[in-house]
């Protein structure tokens, strides 16, 4: 069972991680920030996170690839996908792969933190 308070944030925009880290920490989460998806996958192999927040389009493996990896290796981890360009197709694909939520940029941090809280409760139950 993954530790439901552990959250991974993966986005190649460093500012996203920088801002989310204190906000999530304030909500009592244990946060790890990644800007490189390959490194993030390596970390996912070692640790089962309660919630994964990932960007869609990235250099190297995309958010969809990371989602697919998580579904195979850590089925209990809830995944929130954020993207700069939301299309019906990508949101359908993400939902089909069992993503918890699909969030379009620009998002409100408060809402994202709420989403992470809800997702983590789902993991716990």
């Amino acid at each position: 069972m993954p530790d439901n308070t552990s959250v991974m944030v993966l986005d190649d925009e460093p500012i996203v991680g920088d801002r989310l880290r204190p906000a999530l920490a304030k909500g009592g989460f244990d946060v790890e920030i990644f800007t490189d998806s390959t490194a993030a996958i390596e970390r996912l192999k070692q640790k089962a996170f309660g919630v994964l927040v990932t960007d869609m389009k990235m250099r190297g493996p995309s958010g969809m690839d990371v989602l697919r990896f998580v579904r195979e290796h850590a089925p209990n981890t809830q995944v929130i996908v954020i993207t700069g360009y939301a299309t019906i197709e990508t949101s359908h694909e993400a939902n089909a792969l069992g993503a918890y939520q699909f969030v379009a940029k620009p998002f409100k941090m408060k809402e994202l933190v709420k989403l992470v809280e809800k997702a983590s409760k789902l993991t716990a139950s």
């Binding site: 925009e13 500012i15 996203v16 801002r19 989310l20 700069g84 360009y85 379009a104 940029k105 620009p106 998002f107 409100k108 941090m109």
Partner: peptide, 11 residues
Amino acid sequence: LNNPLNNISIT
């Protein structure tokens, strides 16, 4: 465009 806008918004 959305990436910098998102960065501005969350900052």
